[in-house]
Every structure is written in structure tokens, then in C-alpha cells.
Simulated scan of single mutants.
Amino acid sequence: MSAHTQKPVLIIGGAGLVGSQTARTLRRLQPGLPLTLGGRDLARAGAVARELGGADAVRVDLERPDLGLPDGRAFSAVAMFVKDDTLHSVKYAQAKGVPHVGISTAMFELAPEVALFIHQPARAPILLASQWLAGAATLSVLHFAKEFRALESIDISAVLDEEDLGGPAAYADFERQTQAAPNAQILEDGKWRWVHGEAAARTFKSVDGTEVRGQAYSLLDGMSLAAATGARSIRFDLSLGQSSSRRRGEPFSTEIILELTGELRDGTKGRVRHELVHPSGQAPVTAVGVAVALERLLGLSGGAPVAPGLYLPEVLVEPAYLVRRLEEFGTRFRRV
């Protein structure tokens, strides 16, 4: 491990549901990587740190440019699990010259973060990882797209169980992203469109065959996949309700359905459906996405430490590697 990565990763929101799950995932993937869990509740963060071992806790104040941290503290990366309306966490990472990963920014609210990078492009790597479950859907699409010579359309449907919204920070993200912009952006026949009402609704089959109604959702998956694949139509729909497992009387799960249409390698036209299910919900899937991204940024997998720049997950992480890690941590894949 390099001297750079001997410094701890600062996980802001590290005592929350997804932040703590990410810390545990990193501990399994990189046992020697030190971690610092940051949050408003020092006692809660400290309890998670003691459970992990090789970790400590700090109180973080996002209202302050220095995050309320002592001058002498040094970190190898900053991972954000809450919406930072001040963007002080990005500025802090830039000032320290370390990678920053954020997962709470919708497509329609990217501009302030991108502007910070444009003004200081050589300061730090900034990873925009607000795709569904930190890139799980986008990178899985790219992994399965290898079956195609050319993609025409990509439909991503996600079922988020109403009992699996997560903690207060996750609920606030969902409320903001679904209410701040009344319309959603999709790619339709090569043109970006804002849709609302019936045009924004779509009925799809969940993994148990039940028809559910979804709503178009403006996450980063659409722009990532448009740039990566050249598909002419891409949309992401979210259904908040009851997952298939809970309909069977079991605990909630999370579901992602990927439907790809295009020219297959043998020259025929085909439509292929892949289903991803995690029986413990969205948190462990998101945790793997962020942990794998941090590994890559720090040069602990897939190559040397990443240079300063503005990145999306699919530019840095090999899709097959993420799919393998998702399977190792309990995600089930099925081709229909």
C-alpha cells in the first residue's frame, strides 16, 4: 500500500445505513486501509469505528469550509453519503488534493460541482457517482452490452421497496430529486426530452412477473450510458412500492431490471432482459459501488492512482470487475 493510501479515507455520513455498510465493505476488500467515519453524531460514528477496527471517528460540520476538522488531519480520499448543499466537501478535497466521491447529486443539479472542477481542474479527482446505487445499473448495462454489436435502446427499471428508503439523508435525497424538478429527462430517438405526466410513466414487469408502474427519474445513468454506448433511446424508471420478495411475505429486496435492444453479435436483432436482485435491499449494492470506486481512485485495483480530473464510474471501473464484486456481496443476476 502506498504512503498516500496509508492515510484514512474520510467517510462523511459513515455512521448512516449506506455509509457504515460501505465502511464494512471496504474493510473486507482492503483490510489494511484505515478509515475515518465523519458525521454530526460523534458517539454514533465512534461506535461504528470501534466495531470495524483500524478506524476512528470525527465530528464533521458541513457549514465550515474546513469541515470543522483540525489542520493536522490528512486523508487519502473523501466519500460523501449526504447531500452537501455547501459543496464544502468538494472544496476540502480539492484543497487537500485528494479524490472526492459523491452519490447524492441529480442530473439537473450538477452544474455547481462541475464549475468547481472547471476552475481548478488540476487539483483533485472528482467522481460523479450519483448513478442508481452508485453505478450498479450503469456498469451492469455496459457489462451485458458486450453481447451486442450495436445498442438501439436501454430501459432501466428499478424497484425500491417503500421500507428500504434508508435513513433521513437518503429520504431527503429522494424527496428533493423527485420534487425539485417536476419533469424528468430521457433520451428518445436520439433527442434529449423533458417528460411529465403520462409520458413520464411506464409500466414494467418486476422480477416476479407483477406489473408495476414506474416514473422516469433523472439520475446520471442516462447521460453516462448515452456517452458510453451511442444508444438512441435511454430511460430510467423507478417504482417505489413493494418488492417481489415482500409480496411473498419475506423481507424487502431491491430490484433492477435491464432491457437492452439492438443488433446482436450474430447480426440479428434482439431484446435481452437481465434482472439484478439483492435480498437485503439497496444499501449493500450501493456500498459495493462506492467501495470499488474508492479502490480504483486510490490505485488499489485496476491501475495506478487516478490523476486529477472529472470522472464518471464507467470511465474508471471495469464493468466486469464491479459485476463480480456485486455477486460476491450477495447480488443475484439472472438473464431472461
Rank of each mutant, 00 (worst) to 15 (best):
G54V: 05
V114F: 15
A129L: 15
I234K: 04
E163K: 11
S245L: 14
S130R: 07
I256S: 08
I12G: 06
E147H: 11
T25I: 15
T268Q: 08
P279G: 13
K91L: 14
G53Y: 08
D155H: 02
G222Y: 06
E198K: 02
H274K: 10
L69W: 00
L260A: 02
F252K: 05
L37E: 08
E259M: 02
S140N: 04
T203S: 12
H278R: 02
H4T: 13
W192D: 00
L139R: 00
F252P: 03
A74K: 13
T178K: 09
R235W: 11
P182G: 10
V212P: 05
I234P: 00
F329V: 13
G97R: 00
S140T: 15
L127Y: 10
S233R: 06
E163G: 09
Q215G: 08
G303C: 14
V288N: 03
I12S: 11
E163L: 13
V82A: 08
D84P: 15
L316D: 09
R40P: 00
W194N: 02
L67K: 01
D85R: 14
M80L: 15
L142Y: 10
A111W: 00
R50I: 07
E113F: 01
P70L: 06
G299E: 03
L165Y: 10
G222D: 09
D164S: 10
V78D: 07
E175P: 00
G14V: 11
E188I: 02
V212R: 02
A15K: 03
E211A: 15
